[in-house]
Design a protein around this nucleic acid. Structure first.
Lengths: 270, 270
DNA sequence: TGTGCACCCTCCCGCGGGGGGAGGGTCAAC
DNA sequence: GTTGACCCTCCCCCCGCGGGAGGGTGCACA
């Protein structure tokens, strides 16, 4: 039962190239129904067309061959669906990052380079209620939301807007130490992950970013440039303070985020 | 003016890796402000941060390095914006294809393989008013819309739903001969690209696809499988007939497209 | 039964954009 | 002056695919 197709015919029906089919065979992704042992000719069955199509679609979604293989050899449709869903999720936030990149790009390429207002400010130590952790870059947003929920529950009367401390390793290595915090006037009892700590005093280069966080890296870039231009160097984790955020207004364009970059004066002046 | 940064410092500020910066230098993408001739050390200026950020963003959008270079060396902001816009457009329809792939994938992975109803039908020759052309795969949709506009203007009383003939080369080579047509009872005068021709009679394997064209390839696959299973081979361009299309209802789920695949009986039976 | 020709095979190399690591020079703080 | 962090170049590997060389097969037609 089922007609036998040569690799060329099969290629034409599936819109895959002959080379690619051979590669898939080699990779154990799509075994031909029959391989002539003397000639080495590959023969495919019509029943393999849907499989080839699934592979094609998954490749179109940039799913690596190894993962495609994993999906194909999974019999249980539930497990299989889960594997696919995982990739779709990944794809989802790749698209989100793409949108963010487009936004930043448009801001970066505006004719006027905008001249960010940067202020050098000496800040004193500050008592805060905080939640600390070590997280991977892509998870930061979700992590912060969870941490803030706990802080909200633990702190009755915050002494100012919430903020975050982000270790540089988070950006350079993609994983780093982070601290979500709310300023307080007196220590609060530790509940869950919440602890009272002190934010050390420091000299900060401070700038304010307005709008979505999608383009915040542009502001970071301008701040970085300012810091370098003033012969300063970075001395510790970045501090963000959410002056106006999603809890204040749903209109992203009105959000205001203060970025504070701890700096110290560098020896060799220009 | 402007602080000088080592490659490591610069890498940290731009979130690019040291290796990548070296590669960009080599590729003439981002020349360091200064290269020590004796040590070969690269030194960057703070003024180069925005440039690095633009590169980073463009790379995030999968713009090839050569094109990034082209964008960077373009002074005129208008021309530059056009270059970027071109890539954004490309990105746009990449995302569209991604969405289509997701849709097909979900249909393909449904537990029940759906058992498409296929009918073998002998169709007689049919007089049509048609517009012919040779087009590339991605342009087919736009081309068809244009052709249909001309046909609508030229044909008062079509004798049935409109259709299309698509050469197999369109799928295998990505470019091929196509014909948009409307059945007629008597020849119409040639206006613009419109000509009266005859669609030759043929034996067709016919199936009906319901819904968006996003998942039509799945139906094609099932039809292809049926054809192979019945020891038939493809004998010419595919025919599509738009029984219910966008001009009938905006609800894509109600569209019905008849697919007719000309076939002939193949010698070696199973 | 040959012969032609389209098809198939394997094997090696190229691409683009990046990472890992070897082996060695340089710079600055102590 | 030593030490250790940084920088250099060079080569190889990754993925998924395509090109081409060089050679074997299958089938239709004479």
């Amino acid at each position: 039962m089922g007609h036998v197709l040569t690799i060329g015919e099969f290629a034409q029906m599936t819109h895959l190239s002959v080379r690619t089919l051979r590669r898939y065979h080699e990779a154990g992704l799509l075994e031909p129904a029959h391989v002539d042992p003397s000639s080495g000719y590959r023969y495919y069955g019509a029943a393999q067309i849907p499989t080839a199509q699934v592979i094609f679609k998954l490749r179109e979604l940039d799913v690596p061959l190894a993962d495609v293989r994993q999906i194909l050899i999974t019999q249980d449709p539930v497990v299989r669906a889960a594997l696919v869903a995982e990739h779709l999720e990944r794809l989802e936030d790749r698209m989100a990052r793409t949108r963010a990149a487009v936004a930043s790009l448009q801001r970066l390429l505006r004719p006027e380079p905008a001249g960010l207002a940067v202020e050098l400010r000496q800040v004193p130590a500050q008592l805060v209620a905080g939640v600390e952790d070590t997280v991977a870059h892509p998870d930061v947003l979700g992590w912060y939301a969870g941490a803030m929920a706990e802080l909200d529950a633990a702190v009755r009367e915050p002494a100012g807007p919430a903020g975050g401390l982000y270790d540089n390793a988070l950006f350079s290595e993609g994983r780093g130490h982070v601290l979500a915090h709310v300023p307080i006037t007196a220590p609060v009892p530790g509940v869950g992950r919440v602890r009272s700590t002190e934010l050390p005093g420091a000299e900060l280069a401070v700038a304010v970013h307005t709008g979505t966080h999608d383009t915040i890296d542009v502001t970071y870039g301008e701040l970085g440039r300012w810091v370098a231009d003033h012969t300063l160097a970075v001395a510790g984790p970045v501090r963000e303070t959410y002056l106006v955020g999603p809890r204040d207004t749903p209109v992203a364009a009105r959000w205001r985020t203060e970025i504070g970059w701890p700096v110290f004066r560098v020896a060799g002046a220009a």
